[in-house]
Write a protein that binds this DNA or RNA. Structure first.
Lengths: 225, 225
DNA sequence: TTATCTTTGCGTCAGAATAACACAAAGCTT
DNA sequence: AAGCTTTGTGTTATTCTGACGCAAAGATAA
């Protein structure tokens, strides 16, 4: 990262909006910057592209170093090019969003201290650079995507119950959805499969455990908001 | 464009998929390359980012020089980073798609000769670089977008008839749509306004002339394929 | 002028999809 | 065993959709 300013071409970085769902809350992973500019500000994790590295590889590298994670679902979001977005000079950012299950993530001890943290999306701090705009677009994309395509299970355990999936949707879409109508739509789409087992130790009636159906019957459904 | 290879950062270009609709055909604008690599191949128009230039500005510059056009509807599509996509070296392309009304376009005389041309999307030549992949993604995006959001009028004259809009949809979605059901859906969405005038000189019954409604009642509709 | 044809505008109707809601079974607590 | 909460499974009224009929407007030809 020695020559940040290339005189010919803008610098090229990847910024990541990492969503995690835990305890009925949607959270995003932020990093506390230790350098100027935006020292001590919270920002999205990111990195400059290395030679011969693809966007996806850069993302994986960040996820591995910051979170110790492999095999994360991610999708390209948008490329940001406002000339003033980085006070150091012209910098292009290709934004990706990722979905992870925080339960499976071991944030490395070194970072755990206080420079990496999950924030509830409704209680975000002020973010450095243009990262708030990036976050907003990511949230918007996640919301529209989850309404018609099965990405929700990326945020849940391998086995999950119908109420858990239902709560996830209500949380992400920030609305109430009729439990019974939701159930019908999801089951009709064959997006999930009933394993026949039940979640033991639940509070009252033990709900059925489902898993994601890798071969979808329909390739889409529609949860209206 | 002197230093194509920046040793630190990949070169950064914009590629444009320009769609035009004319004579009941959807066409895309291609350029015949005069230099290596891919000399004499058809490619998407594009340009390298200049200092302090934003993606959108680069697009406008290309549209202005190649087509003599201003004020074109465009939208960012995706950023391409395959290391092998440009044989000269690492090159990132930010792809945009644009919608124009060819009737309003005067391709400048110099280019008109034989290096810029419209191609029906069903009769595309072999394209240089990874431009076929870019085109495919653009077409896919246009199709999904037009099915739920009013972008079609960008391809038509300011005043248009219901049969014209209907044909546009059938052409882009590459399917047949019941004329009467289409009419109902579009009118229900309040996406267009009946001007009260009729297209004179039409073959038989003179159809009503509509215009785009800038203040939409509903912000979406759904034309199913 | 009248008959005929094509195109366009408007309406109907059966079936599907949806929203709102009732109810019972399963598992806790007392 | 009674009462509570949670979960699974209906039911019903309404809306939406797809398939289609029909008449008005304009052109053409007898």
């Amino acid at each position: 990262m020695k020559a940040f300013h290339s005189y010919q071409n803008p610098s090229l970085a990847v910024d990541l909006v990492v969503f995690g769902y835990s305890k009925q809350q949607l959270a995003v992973l932020l990093l506390n910057r230790k350098e100027e500019p935006f020292k001590d500000c919270w920002v999205l994790p990111g990195a400059f592209l290395q030679m011969e590295e693809r966007f996806r590889d850069t993302c994986s590298r960040v996820l591995k170093t910051k979170l110790g994670m492999d095999d994360v679902y991610m999708e390209q979001l948008y490329s940001f090019d406002e000339p003033e977005r980085d006070p150091r000079g012209r910098a292009i950012a290709v934004a990706y969003y990722a979905l992870v299950n925080p339960a499976r993530v071991a944030i490395s001890a070194g970072n755990m201290a206080n420079d990496v943290a999950w924030f509830n999306i409704k209680e975000l701090p002020k973010l450095g650079f243009d990262h708030h705009a990036i976050f907003e677009i990511a949230l918007q994309r996640l919301r529209s995507k989850i309404a018609y395509f099965p990405v929700g299970f990326e945020l849940l355990d391998e086995l999950f119950t119908m109420p858990e999936l239902h709560e996830l949707y209500e949380c992400i879409l920030d609305t109430t959805i009729d439990r019974r109508n939701f159930r019908r739509k999801i089951l009709d789409s064959a997006y999930i499969i009933n394993t026949g087992n039940k979640r033991e130790g639940a509070q009252n009636r033990h709900p059925d455990l489902y898993k994601f159906n890798k071969k979808l019957k329909k390739n889409s459904f529609q949860i209206n908001v």
